[in-house]
């Protein structure tokens, strides 16, 4: 079983007792790219979420980087944030937890665009 992550360390079970004998069985694990490839997006032309990287530079929490379930907030070398709206679940997590007024401009994609869950 191969497990790749886009960033950070490889497979770690934060809760695992160090003494656990066998490596845990893992099923359905895929790279983050392959994970997102399971979701349909009708990408609109207008970016429905815009992140002002300049505002992010003074942010001390960067909770969006950890919490966005689509992993769309990528820290840049110069302390800003690189954001791409295309594979967004439109869940609202980022604007709810954002630490800086004005960093995130959040709207829904235009009608008919954006995520389309086949199961949900």
């Amino acid at each position: 079983m191969i497990l790749r992550r886009r960033r950070g360390a490889a497979t770690v079970d934060a809760n695992a007792a160090p003494a656990r004998a066998a490596a845990p069985e893992r099923w359905g694990e895929v790279s983050f790219e392959d994970r997102m490839a399971t979701v349909d997006f009708r990408v609109g032309e207008r970016p429905h979420i815009v992140v002002d990287s300049d505002v992010c530079r003074s942010c001390t929490t960067r909770e969006c980087v950890t919490a966005c379930p689509a992993n769309l907030f990528a820290p840049t070398a110069d302390g800003g944030i690189l954001f791409n709206y295309e594979q967004c679940f439109e869940c609202g997590t980022c604007y709810q937890i954002c630490n800086r007024e004005g960093a995130i401009t959040w709207t829904y994609p235009d009608g008919g665009h954006g995520v389309v869950f086949r199961h949900g």
Binding site: W27, G28, E29, V30, D34, R35, M36, T38, V39, P69, A70, F89, C91, G92, T93, Q96, V115, F117, R118, H119, G120
Partner: peptide, 11 residues
């Protein structure tokens, strides 16, 4: 043996 068919999130 399960394979991922769809991933998603909602508040």
């Amino acid at each position: 043996g399960a394979t991922l068919k769809e991933y998603g999130a909602h508040l």
